[in-house]
Structure formats: C-alpha cells, structure tokens
Amino acid sequence: MLKMTHLSKVYRTEVVETYALRDFNINVNEGEFVAVTGPSGSGKTTFLTIAGLLETFTGGQYHLDGVEVSNLNDNERSRIRNEKIGFIFQAFNLIPDLNVFDNVEVPLRYRGMKAPERKQRIMDALERVGLASRAKHYPAELSGGQQQRVAIARALAGSPRLLLADEPTGNLDTQMARGVMELLEEIHREGATIVMVTHDPELAARAQRNVHIIDGQVVDLAEDPRFHHAVHAARANSPA
C-alpha cells in the first residue's frame, strides 16, 4: 500500500539544512495498522505528511498504491488525498466557521459528490462516531474528544483506504483517547490501512506493528531497549 525506499527530506533555511528524514525505508501493507513512535523532532510528522502527499520529498522513492508519487502533479495529488487518504490531526483541524455536518461534508464536496449521497455518508459517518445528534453544533461547542471524533468522521466519510493519524490522542485525556483508539481499531477491522503516530506506548502496543523513528530513520525496535521494554510492559497490561 505504502512503500518508501531511501527516502530523504531536507528542510533548507538560510543557515542550516535539516535532514528531517534520511535513507528512510518503510513498507506498510494493505490492511495493516502501524503505530509510529519516536522522540519529538525525530521526523514522525514529516513522514506522515509525505505519506499523505501533503508535502514533497527531497530524494528516494515513494510508491503509494503502486504509483510513484513524485511524478504526480498538484491536481492529481489533491485527487488522491481526497479519494484515498483520510487525515486525522493532533489539533483536530476542524473548520471553525462550519458546523459539524458542514465540516464532514468538505472532502465530499471536493470530490464532486451529489447532495443526497453526501448527506447519507455524513450521517453514516457521524453515527459511526456517535455524534449524529451534534450535526448542527459548531466545533467550539464540542469537547476535544468530540471534535476529534468529528475529524475522524470527516476522514471516514470519504471511505479512504489509508488513514493517517498524527498523534490523534495527543490533545485528549486518557478516557477520550481510549474512545478514539477504539474507533480507529474498529475502522481497521473493516479493512482500512492505518498509520498512526503516537507518543503513548499503551496505544502503540495496540497496533499490529510498531515502527520507531529516531533522527529521521526507521530503527529496529530491538536496538532501543528502553522503548522495547515500555512496549512490552504496555502489552502485558493492556486488556486486549
């Protein structure tokens, strides 16, 4: 589904060149649930933005669904984002001027979907996340957990095959985080591929696979005993 080989991303400013990713290799299969962990500044978000075609990369290759993405133009990238990928951000990123219903509708409109189908999908997605009754509310009227569930509904409504989540629970308390996680697991069971960045070892442990990033590179978890232990401890504790 998602394959990066020798990928690099360099941020150049006037004074420094930062290698956010270097010789980055990863392969995520269709239907996998991958948790990405790593210290702050290690390049997790950079990886996710490149994976989600939000950003270009400097070197190497990235195949998404078998397509080499560096050959795509801006419009094609937009279309793939719209049709294949669902995003969930740490900061929810709902549009404050629009109510819940209209927020979930945004990607569907960009797909040119007809109104009845849009409505059907929006209500389905909102029901999924348990917020159908809040359709007319504005984001500011909702709790953080509710907002993130709206964001998930927005990502879900377009039935994406790949769901990218950047610390989706980072701004939520434990209970809300658990709710969001359960939702993601449910979505995964229905067949979506999920790549989730998280700081929370407990959540990471619930994914099928863990990928650890340090200094812009994927490292073998076995080489980082501290994290290894943390994950195992979490796995042992988790109710699963």
């Binding site: 990123n93 404050p96 945004v106 927005r154």
Partner: peptide, 16 residues
C-alpha cells in the same frame, strides 16, 4: 491559512 491548508489536505485543488 490553517483552514486553507486543511482544505487542501482534504482534497481541494488550487483552483478550488
């Protein structure tokens, strides 16, 4: 700016 970025992320083209 942020909301424009979000719209782009959700599939809006430059023309949109």
């Amino acid at each position: 700016r942020k909301q424009i970025g979000v719209r782009r992320a959700l599939g809006a083209t430059k023309r949109d």
